[in-house]
Nucleic acid binder design. Structure first.
Lengths: 225, 225
DNA sequence: CTCCTTGCTGTACGATCGTTCAACAAGGTT
DNA sequence: AACCTTGTTGAACGATCGTACAGCAAGGAG
């Protein structure tokens, strides 16, 4: 009887599993408590482990936070890439799939904004965060640029931007177009998360598609000139 | 001689002056050290006063931070309103003045972004910050909406948005147009501050003007239908 | 059943946090 | 020159922070 009542005080986990659990707990704490949730004690309580365990799996707190940042970044980019891949080959369908994925859960989530904002606040003063941003943001930018390139009717690649008079105008358009679309995406995402009542996600998709359609028309006009 | 060498250990200041100095010091600390700069000791050192003085002029730290938030908010809105007022009466000139003010110092400043981001991180968990946001953001939104209204050729005001079939389409356009333009402004501002090398401020103005021109054309087409 | 490895616990430590408060002194008033 | 008001100082407090570390114990190997 005494043997049956006896149960382990804790369960051992493989390092990879425990590390991921700690990363998940970190993100959950950020959602709930914002920047103040970024404390060893809060995170370990959320993960259901002792304070000492974090330093067993991560050299220090900054490395844990960096791992959490890497996780949400790659989670987002992989989700977008998957949504686009699922849409097939038509450039229009791919762009629409991207926009709809962007303006729906889990991307479009007020809790998620709270998490991102904390990381942005760390960005300027943490080499670690800067490095991870560069590494992961690349995938996002190249995906968007690739979709725009196959949508806009122009033969030149972005590479030829500095090539001179020939296709300069159209290529500059691609460059600026990508910047403008990114800005629109980020801005609408930001607005919705801050005040979800002001417009519906479908309207955001609509706005972005109008922007893209405008670009396509302008690009076609430039090409036929 | 002893009298001449003797100098006061500190200088008294009127409350209003000292409060403003503390607010300025708070913002400066945020620029330099980010969220970690938000400590009583860091701020008081920056202001050149003792730790105790802050609680003499502010009931607690949160109130000081809120005062700093209110200051940068109203500073921004007043600057925009002044730039627009200086531009005269032409709607086009007013919009251009607004855009150029938006995409130049002191608005467009990577340091400033670091400050804003910290406040955004506080937003969700601080009633005080939320209240100030609502109070000051109002002026910015109404300025932008007013400029758009006088630029787009439609007789209806935003009020008539729910009035029914008559001018519904055009009015929804104004609503969405303001949202889209705001998103574009915020997004471009964000992008530039994060990576100032990718495009020039003038290009951002250009993008926004293209967006507005597109809106004007679309609105005119809808009105003549 | 008895090791052995190692994931894990939990106390302890020094630093720093926001806030309090008694004492000080600057600078105008009488 | 004595006085008063009050802006200002700086030590002290308890709470909480990130990290270190000695020892416990889970669970597979032998």
């Amino acid at each position: 009887m005494a043997r049956a009542a006896r149960k382990p005080r804790f369960a051992r986990q493989p390092p990879a599993v425990r590390r991921q659990a700690l990363v998940d707990a970190t993100i959950e704490c950020l959602k709930r408590y914002g920047h103040e949730g970024l404390s060893i004690r809060t995170i370990s309580a959320q993960a259901g482990v002792s304070v000492g365990l974090i330093n067993h799996h991560f050299p220090n707190k900054d490395e844990l936070v960096a791992a959490a940042y890497r996780h949400i970044n790659s989670e987002l980019v992989l989700g977008m890439q998957a949504a686009v891949a699922r849409a097939g080959r038509s450039p229009q369908a791919r762009m629409r799939a991207f926009l709809e994925a962007w303006f729906s859960a889990p991307s479009l989530d007020a809790d998620a904004l709270a998490v991102w904002v904390v990381f942005w606040g760390l960005y300027r003063h943490s080499r670690l965060i800067q490095r991870i941003h560069r590494e992961t943001y690349q995938g996002y930018v190249s995906l968007l640029r690739e979709m725009l390139a196959e949508l806009l009717p122009q033969p030149r690649t972005a590479r030829s931007r500095r090539a001179g008079r020939g296709g300069a105008a159209a290529s500059v358009d691609l460059h600026l177009a990508a910047i403008g679309l990114t800005a629109l995406l980020d801005g609408l995402w930001l607005e919705w998360c801050l005040e979800p009542g002001t417009f519906r996600p479908a309207e955001a998709v609509e706005l972005c598609e109008a922007w893209v359609a405008h670009l396509v028309r302008r690009s076609a006009a430039a090409a036929s000139r």
